[in-house]
Design a protein around this nucleic acid. Structure first.
Lengths: 310, 310
DNA sequence: CGCCGAGACGAAAATATCTTTCATACCGTG
DNA sequence: CACGGTATGAAAGATATTTTCGTCTCGGCG
């Protein structure tokens, strides 16, 4: 029956009722003069603390403002919503927007007395930044060249010490998974010993953030001089390591500080490069890589069956 | 009754029970495996179209997904909300956020014939997403507890195999750098053998994405039973490994696909957790950690040959 | 000064919505 | 193929929202 519409009409014109998305405070100010005292109290509370009000029921808000449920609903109607329920929903949205709005507090350095939540936010933000920077700065031509070399390599050696050593191992693990012959070296002596074995068609990859790690440069030099295709993953495109690199893949250097050593942040960018290499090679050698990948996917799916324990 | 007080309390500042504000999609993915079929349908609908679902009542959503109200409520509970009402509120907030934030374009899967530039962009975007999700889903209370335990530990053992083994080593390297006694174990036998040595005051950390890796669970169980403080870093908060974990740190499960296996993307989140642990401990033990950090930096300096300056 | 009416306002009924309970159907397992 | 356990939805039960309706306030007017 059309009788129901009557109440809604009071709100305004023939608008199909576009619920205010974020311009709520404005609406409150505009409509405040045409409100009764009680309704003004409600409107004020709502404009004052959207998040808080969103958490309240109609009864709660009525109590908070010292009014009744009916008044709260009337106010909601006046603000353009079908009822309190919808106002509340809009309020929640508004709160969320405000929340996300005030984010840039995390650009500062991590302090000794930062609470845990800040540490998490800052670290996450920083690593995201590193990823974005690295992705933006990666030379896709160099990357494609490195992928080509890897895809056709007889064998691949990866050099890295310290934190970069783990990245080297990560790459090796991935390449092995799709059927390539790869080995990571952290021991400089063994690395050089093995580098001597390399020849044209093989690939040697050096991972070093500073680009000045002698223990990593040395085996790359040997590999280079023996005719292997050499790749350097470094944060310094002008560092010594690039002397012996056919292809240089540059990672972003994130801002470092006392509680955030370079060795830590560099890892993120290096791993992105590693992932890119892996996916690139997997694409190139898809025929061979697909079964291997499918197998590991299967293995995981099998594990997924496990439900909550006894 | 005290019931009324509870409601009013919600209006205040600190949230006693932290419901997921924006990390909903991540939560859905994380918890999906432990859901029943019907609940998965509901979760999918919710993750698929937050705005649309926010407009629906329980009954509406139940009909849309072809399930019952009870199932919808159950799903809401599983996602961490007291009931559907609160899920709906969060959904409205999420919708508002999505509205304001520009829609990302590179959400598609990596294809075999994607050019290198696309691969880089997609991988970077995905890892950024994983970081954001993990950060949003991390329980800072658990994290702080783990940090406390680490800071006061006599010794710390870290277990991880496969890709997670590298994460374990990364954590170990970092902890050693600030003067803590830490060791990473990839060999399950040695891990158990060592776990027996642990006692109250020591810390054992298991890193496993699936949470079902027996080789990692076993040493953690032994450590747990010997009174050590145990921590699990996993993507599955309901997996077997958490049985023996005093503190559970959950990493986000990124969308996976053929060219992007879970083992690969999980690493990003795990490393963020590791970094958080490290920084947290460094903060707590700042007096001791600062000189240690400086010292290790100094020690490395001479391994780096002078850069060829411009 | 007191009466009157228009609108504001809230108590409570009516309705919609959410939550819980419970019986049934389904599924894997021995 | 029976069994135990879980998943699921129908309906009862509890809350929240909306509507109804009568009282109350306040200003104007006789």
């Amino acid at each position: 029956m059309t009788n129901d519409v009557k109440e809604i009409f009071a709100g305004g014109g023939a608008t199909p009722a576009p619920p205010a998305p974020a311009a709520l405070a404005a609406k409150v100010r505009t409509l405040a003069p045409s409100m009764t005292r009680s309704m003004q109290r409600v409107a004020e509370a709502v404009a004052d603390d959207p998040a808080g009000c969103a958490a309240l029921t109609v009864t709660g808000l009525a109590e908070l403002t010292g009014t009744s449920e009916a008044t709260v609903v009337r106010t909601a109607r006046l603000l353009g919503y079908p009822g309190y329920r919808d106002l509340r929903l809009a309020l929640a949205g508004l709160a969320a927007q405000q929340q996300s709005g005030r984010a840039p507090a995390i650009t500062t350095d991590i302090a000794v007395d930062d609470p845990m939540a800040d540490v998490v936010a800052k670290l996450a933000y920083d690593e995201q930044q590193t990823l974005a920077d690295t992705a933006a700065g990666l030379d896709t031509v160099q990357l494609a060249a490195a992928v080509s070399a890897l895809a056709g390599a007889r064998r691949t050696d990866v050099y890295g010490v310290g934190a970069s050593g783990l990245v080297a191992q990560d790459l090796t693990q991935k390449l092995l998974r799709i059927g390539l012959l790869a080995h990571a070296h952290s021991d400089p002596h063994l690395a050089v010993t093995n580098a001597v074995q390399l020849r044209s068609g093989d690939v040697a990859i050096a991972i070093t953030h500073s680009g000045s790690t002698g223990d990593v440069i040395e085996p790359l030099r040997v590999a280079f001089e023996h005719g292997a295709t050499t790749v350097a993953v470094t944060g310094r495109p002008d560092s010594p390591v690039t002397q012996y690199a056919d292809h240089v893949l540059t990672t972003s250097t994130a801002r470092e500080s006392e509680l955030r050593p370079a060795a830590m942040s560099s890892r993120t960018g290096q791993l992105l490069v590693v992932d890119c290499l892996f996916v690139g090679v997997a694409q190139r050698t898809y025929e061979a890589a697909a079964p291997a990948l499918a197998a590991s996917y299967e293995a995981l799916a099998h594990r997924h069956r496990a439900r909550k324990g006894p």
